[in-house]
């Protein structure tokens, strides 16, 4: 019963997000996924204590912890693209690896620099 209630709250936010997403698309012609809008609204309502955390915690944490399961069918469908991927898969792999290196290092170093400057300005160091 509790789980069904929580599921309906979460699904409700997803619907509200979809409606706002539809309106944004129709009225302003910008596309933001409804699920993302639902997420932001839920975050705001949790932070402002309009919605209590225990209204969504069990089902929500279950979804967050087992997210991978829901993507098995999409991942398996890659079989349909084996033909297209056969000649170029190594290019994709190389791009992913190089891009990962660049992203990881640039984020790590820029945040390190940010922290360094912040410490200088504040004059104290907290981890």
């Amino acid at each position: 019963m509790k789980l069904l209630k929580q599921l309906s709250v979460i699904a409700g936010f997803s619907i509200i997000g979809e409606i706002i997403s539809y309106l944004l698309k129709e009225l302003l012609d910008i596309f933001i996924p409804g699920s993302l809008i639902g997420m932001i609204i839920l975050f705001i309502l949790l932070t402002t204590k309009v919605i209590k955390y225990d209204f969504v915690d069990d089902v929500g944490e279950f979804f967050v912890n087992n997210m991978g399961f829901f993507f098995v069918p999409v991942a398996v469908s890659i079989m349909n693209y084996f033909g297209i991927l056969a000649p170029i898969w190594w290019k994709l792999l190389l791009i992913i690896i190089i891009s990962f290196f660049l992203t990881f290092v640039s984020v790590g170093l820029s945040v390190k620099l940010t922290m360094f400057i912040q410490d200088k300005l504040r004059g104290d160091i907290d981890d």
């Binding site: 699920s35 929500g60 069918p73």
Partner: peptide
């Protein structure tokens, strides 16, 4: 072959949107 499989697992697609909504929890 793939279609038979993905049709069987169709129900998970309904959950993808609520799943993203739940990402509000770890940041909260």
């Amino acid at each position: 072959t793939v279609d038979i499989y993905t049709n069987a697992l169709n129900f998970v697609n309904f959950m993808l949107s609520p799943l993203t909504v739940c990402l509000a929890l770890p940041i909260y």
